[in-house]
Design a protein around this nucleic acid. Structure first.
Lengths: 231, 231
DNA sequence: TTAAATTATTGACATTACTCAATATTTTGA
DNA sequence: TCAAAATATTGAGTAATGTCAATAATTTAA
């Protein structure tokens, strides 16, 4: 189901992440030699939790949902990734498997960079490695937020967290809700779909959010942040 | 409440982590020049969530509990750190604050390494940076496990996860339970103390675990793993 | 060593959030 | 365009887990 697209040369790439600016031309050319570019259609899995991880993935253009699989078809959604973001950086070392699954929310062009090549750049170029470490730091902060949310907030607080995340300015231009089902939103909240729907209706009736078709807009962000804070 | 101890020279340190082996002597001497060694007494906080993070911390000798603070005095415990482990690596870049709190479970000697110095080593030495990245990869895997546990297991599965973690072979020689209260264990499970106590009694009555004083021993690890798997 | 303080345990009850079922709405594909 | 399939919504009942209170056991400190 996946197509090879005409590959962009990494040296000409207009969607390159800040960290690539730390590479010298020969290193960029080295990546270029060791990458493949693939088009994933909406709904296709880009990587699967527990599958063999041979590549670091880079979203050249697209929109991706990252989630943890669990039995009974009740997944935990962790984040939305967009153009210029990495997938699988946490599988560079350690067990040679992906720790999560990702699925394309819309047609997405993904660069597959060979892990060994990526590792070589990390050891050769400390500035590049430092930039990747920046990513890890930011990433870990997000995971702590998720743990805080799941671990000691109840449904209202958790839904507030999820809505604030999905409506944050980074995703503002992605029309994110047009790509998400109620079940997807429930996955971000860590609730059953039914409970999520009920709470959304509640928030709508209290004029804290507005629901127009699939789109959800926050009308009262201060109050929502308050709900998030109170848990 | 904290004492300065006679500092060990980093070049002679017998508790140094694998990553330090990647440093050349002058770099190790550089760390030595930019570190301070402090003794924290049992029960003292080594770092506080949201506090200004100027140092990367290294446990020269000790035992530490890492946790997320939350209102109502109901914390989420994430891990036990022992000799030769880092604290605060995720605050090297990004917001200049600690994302979690840590407390000494027994008297612990901690090395405070200036963040700027640590960063310099990361950019100067890609092999060192790569070793630190290994840490991030392992760390993230643990956080995902936590999210899986909190996000889609119920009490029995979560308690099993916590007990398997606390009884794992890395902690086997630490007499870990002698340092933990029921409330601490509940913090690892993500349950109220009362529910945790009830479940522990249940597991004891089913001969899955043995409780002798403060010590808890797993009698039937296969069954416990099964409970963990089923959630 | 003993009393006070803290921690652990148990019970009863309340709350939270899930499941299952019924119905409504939207999307998809012929 | 229309029927079938998928998704969303709502209600009723249930299961999971928390809270509060009482008591027991352990630890701490004078």
């Amino acid at each position: 189901m996946t197509d090879f697209t005409e590959s962009t040369n990494c040296l000409d790439c207009t969607n390159s992440s800040a960290c690539f600016k730390k590479l010298i031309p020969s290193e960029l050319e080295f990546i270029n030699q060791n990458k493949t570019q693939i088009l994933y259609r909406k709904g296709e899995n880009i990587c699967k939790q527990r599958a063999f991880a041979s590549y670091v993935l880079y979203i050249s253009e697209g929109l991706v949902k990252l989630y943890l699989e669990s039995p009974h078809n009740k997944n935990i959604n962790l984040k939305i990734l967009k153009t210029s973001e990495f997938i699988g950086l946490s599988s560079i070392y350690g067990d040679n498997i992906y720790n999560y699954s990702t699925v394309a929310l819309k047609d997405s062009t993904i660069c597959l960079i060979e892990k060994d090549s990526f590792r070589k750049l990390l050891t050769d170029n400390g500035h590049f490695a430092s930039d990747i470490i920046k990513w890890y730091c930011e990433n870990e902060k997000q995971l702590f937020n998720k743990i805080q949310s799941l671990g000691n907030k109840q449904m209202h607080g958790r839904l507030a967290d999820a809505l604030l995340y999905l409506c944050n300015e980074d995703l503002l231009n992605e029309q994110i809700f047009s790509h998400l089902s109620r079940k997807d939103i429930a996955g971000f909240v860590g609730l059953s779909t039914e409970s999520t729907v009920r709470l959304l209706t509640e928030l709508k009736n209290e004029n804290i959010i507005e629901i127009i078709g699939k789109e959800i807009k926050i009308l009262n962000p201060d109050l929502l942040r308050d709900i998030s804070r109170r848990g």
